[in-house]
Write a protein that binds this DNA or RNA. Structure first.
Lengths: 156, 156
DNA sequence: GCGATAATGTTGTATATGCACCATAGATTC
DNA sequence: GAATCTATGGTGCATATACAACATTATCGC
């Protein structure tokens, strides 16, 4: 309001940050929740980020790194590296003669789909634990939020 | 229910995962929100995770890596490395003759507190953008969730 | 067709994050 | 007091993540 007032005490500023920062809370939740799923998925040799990417790719169908990045809000370079690991695991593959020519769409393999089917019970176990931690209310809020990010208002 | 039934179609399983996974959504939100704050904080030479740690450390007062890790849900080794960078920036320091002897508490320096005061307006700008993205409802849900994780039911 | 522009994928660099494992230093137990 | 247990901090390793810069490849405008 008034730029000439003395700066507010650092203590107050930090109290405001500690009490309200959305980023701190988002990252905290992400860390804790990721840990829950990593624990359940570990026996299958796949981790949380890889599982997420695999599911997104099944959902999207054959897609280029750039397309996946736009939908999943990840940098192209991140996908170049993460997909390389998933390729070597045989969960995904490059679709041969697809797309115009510059892009090289990737798709989930049969092995990738089978893996998802096999680990489904463990994933549900993790879901259950997450629900306990976040309560049904929290789960719904997060679901709604994320869906809003994934499906931005279509250009009319 | 019945282990002898044929496995449900992979398609259905993936649809369930894509539509309900809490981890995928938590990480997505975290990525997007972190990006918002990183953009605002960049001019100050500090990134989102470092900012979060700095705020937590002011809040906690002099604390060992182990204590910070328990409160902030981070591995001790993660803190060893992250704090090293913050030490070299002069935002935190080792408290000399504190604690019993085995632990070596770390505390935020004057420079660290000043940095928080200086970047406060940019942080509020990021808060504003986050509020637009998540809506007031989402912000409150995340805040409530995270507070629940930070303040677990005290052992009675 | 040609030059300008835009999109794609890659690599270098820096940081975040957790697990497994280790050495050390307090704390416990007898 | 010595053996054992436990907590702390550090290292090696693997992965996630983004930004900057680059070469390549379309695409557009003319």
């Amino acid at each position: 309001m008034n730029a000439d007032l003395p700066p507010e005490p650092v203590h107050d500023v930090v109290a405001e940050m500690a009490g309200e920062c959305v980023m701190m809370r988002s990252r905290l939740i992400s860390r804790v929740v990721t840990g829950i799923y990593d624990q359940e998925l570990r026996p299958f040799g796949i981790n949380s980020p890889q599982f997420a990417l695999l599911v997104v790719m099944v959902k999207m169908g054959p897609s280029s790194r750039a397309e996946i990045g736009r939908y999943h809000h990840q940098d192209r370079s991140t996908l170049t590296r993460n997909l390389k690991i998933m390729l070597s695991e045989g969960w995904i593959e490059e679709v041969p003669g697809a797309a115009g020519g510059r892009a090289r769409p990737m798709a989930v393999t049969r092995a990738g789909r089978d893996l998802l089917a096999v680990l489904a019970p463990s994933w549900r176990e993790a879901q259950k634990k997450a629900r306990v931690l976040l309560c049904e209310e929290g789960v719904q809020a997060i679901t709604k939020l994320a869906n809003g990010i994934l499906k931005p208002a279509p250009a009319v």
